[in-house]
Amino acid sequence: MTATRADRIGLLVLPGLAYLGLIYALPLFLLLLKSFRDATGAFSVAEFVQIFGDPLQRSIMARTLRVAFLVTLLALVIAWPTAIVMRRAKGGWLSLFLVAMILPMSLGVVVKAFAWSILFRTNGFINQAMMALGLTDAPVRLLFTETALVIGAANVFLPFMVLPIYAVLQQQDPNLPDAAATLGAGPYQRFFKVILPLALPGVVAGCAFVFSMAVSMYVIPSLIIGERQQTVAMQIARSFLFLRNEQLGSSLSTILLLIAVSVVLGSSWLAARLGARQ
């Protein structure tokens, strides 16, 4: 039996598989294994029971999920109109938008975080503007708050929301809203019956990207709110680096991983269902 050409082309995936298996899957697996063992090495879920029983851990998890949810929501609210405008933009304007989306990604989060601190400071630009407009009498505390974290993280992850939405909108036949209009659909119906359903796979993909990155982010919260308001990812780092508690760290990692995996699987299932007819 000789291998067909298609079979041999399939071999090209081997280096990538080997790389991922060695560098990603294996250590992750070992980490996961550790989370189900106690200090003596026997199988145990005691660490999980303890984590979910601890009010502090629970509040950290709740904050992590809340922040990830709000970051995703804020990114979506900003990304949708941006993607709509990009879809209508042509030539130079479109290139400008794409550069504006991609260029900030090359700027490290550290630089951005310190730039934001100038904005968010008590006597920073935002507070001065709000006071000048009479929105507030005294400076509002922004730095080291969850609000600042949500705003900052949404900024970092925005391209991951805009680009998938732009991609699906761009594939949409521009005649479809017109066809809907001539069939008697008003602007509201055109949006909810045609434009949105067709864009949903992109929206779902963008939300999945941003949520899974926001739920596991470490650098941004460390820089913006620091130690006083922990997230799960910061807890993991703390338990490995400072507490030397590998059980706690690996169990938290497992929880975080399960959240991320279920978000990704759930969203790809949803996207496949939504896209099935297209």
Partner: peptide
């Protein structure tokens, strides 16, 4: 507006809704 005119259009590419 077009949705209040009761004028139907058959588009060149038919513009059928792919999700329906």
């Amino acid at each position: 507006p077009p949705h209040k005119r009761n004028i139907s259009v058959v588009f060149q590419n038919y513009a059928l809704f792919p999700h329906l």
